[in-house]
Design a protein around this nucleic acid. Structure first.
Length: 269
DNA sequence: CATTGTCCCTGGAAGC
DNA sequence: TGCTTCCAGGGACAAT
C-alpha cells in the first residue's frame, strides 16, 4: 500500500523519464478515476502539456505542468504507476503517452485511487500535517500536536492532518520501535515516549525510502520491481510470528477498524 | 473541534 | 468442491 516511502520512491523513479516531456495521448478507461474536471476537459487540458516537475506531499503525488497547473494523484490502496507496462486489461484505469515514446499506466485493482487537475500551483489537497522528514517535524511539534488528544495514538498517527504520509504499516512499525501500545491515549504520552516516537517515525520512514518501499500487497515501483522494506518489518503484518526483540508472539487488534500489529510484551498498555 | 463509524472497492485466504 | 466470511486500509463524509 502506497504510504509516504512508496510515493516518494515512485516520484524519484518517474522523474528522469517524465520531466520535460509532453502528453501526446491520454486514455481514461474508468471514469471514476478523475475527480475534476470532466473527463473531456481533463484530457483536453492535459494534452500537449509539458511536465515541469514531480513532487510529493504526504501520500499525494503532484505532477507540476509547465503552464503552472498541476495533476494531483492519490494511489490509495492498490494504485500503481507503471512505465511501459500493459496498456489495457481488467485493472488498467488510464494510460498516458509521452513525446519521448514513454507510456505511463495507472493500474489499480480496487479502483480506490483518484486524480484531478488543479488550477494553480497551489494544488488544493486537504490540510496536511508536517512532513516527517522536514525540519517542521520536531519533537516539540509532535508533542504539541498530540497534546490533549484522547484518541488512541495509533488513530492519531493515521490522521493526515496531524502528520502527513504515515499509513497503517509504518504507524505499527514506529509504535513498536518506540515501545508504545497502539491503544495508548495520544495525549497521555510522557515526554520520553514522545521523543522515542518522534525518533522512531523518522527512522522508520527513512529506512523504508532507502529500501524503495514495502511490497506487502501489490505495490510495485514504476519499472515493475517490488520494494524491499517489508522484509525488515518487525510487527506489521506479522501476526503469530515471534517478536524479534523478546520472542513473544505478535498480536493483531483492531483500532478504529484498522488492523494493528504489536508485541504485547514490548508495547505494554 | 475531536472523535467514531460507515462506505467505497476487489480479490486472496481462511473457514466450514 | 463451493459457499461464506474475513482481511487488506486511505480518506471522504456523516453523525455525535
Amino acid at each position: 500500500m502506497p504510504e509516504l516511502p512508496e510515493v516518494e520512491t515512485i516520484r524519484n523513479e518517474l522523474k528522469p523519464h517524465l520531466i520535460g516531456h509532453k502528453f501526446t495521448e491520454i486514455i481514461i478507461y474508468d471514469s471514476k478515476l478523475i475527480l475534476q474536471p470532466s473527463i473531456e476537459e481533463f484530457c483536453r487540458k492535459l494534452m500537449g502539456q509539458t511536465i515541469a516537475d514531480i513532487r510529493r506531499r504526504g501520500k499525494y503525488l503532484i505532477i507540476n505542468l509547465a503552464n503552472g497547473k498541476s495533476l494531483v494523484i492519490h494511489l490509495r490502496m492498490t494504485g500503481a504507476l507503471l512505465l511501459n507496462s500493459e496498456t489495457a486489461g481488467k485493472h488498467v484505469r488510464a494510460v498516458f503517452k509521452f513525446d519521448n515514446g514513454n507510456c505511463l499506466t495507472f493500474f489499480d485493482v480496487r479502483r480506490l485511487g483518484v486524480m484531478w487537475l488543479n488550477k494553480g500551483i497551489n494544488y488544493s489537497i486537504p490540510e496536511l500535517g508536517p512532513e516527517p522528514l522536514s525540519d517542521d517535524f520536531s519533537v516539540d511539534i509532535l508533542a504539541k500536536r498530540l497534546k490533549g488528544r484522547k484518541a488512541p495514538i495509533k488513530a492519531v498517527l493515521l490522521d493526515q492532518s496531524v502528520i502527513a504520509g504515515i499509513g497503517n504499516m509504518y504507524a505499527d512499525e514506529a509504535l513498536f520501535n518506540a515501545g508504545i501500545h497502539p491503544m495508548k491515549t495520544a495525549g497521555g504520552l510522557s515526554s520520553e515516549e514522545t521523543k522515542k516516537l518522534h525518533n522512531a517515525i523518522v527512522e522508520v520512514i527513512k529506512k523504508a525510502i532507502g529500501n524503495k518501499g514495502a511490497s506487502v500487497a501489490n505495490y510495485k515501483r514504476p519499472g515493475g520491481e517490488p520494494g524491499t522494506a517489508h522484509k525488515y518489518f518487525k510487527v506489521a503484518h506479522q501476526r503469530g510470528k515471534p517478536c524479534p526483540v523478546c520472542g513473544e508472539l505478535i498480536q493483531r487488534i483492531a483500532v478504529r477498524n484498522r488492523g494493528s500489529y504489536f508485541c504485547p510484551n514490548c508495547q505494554e498498555e
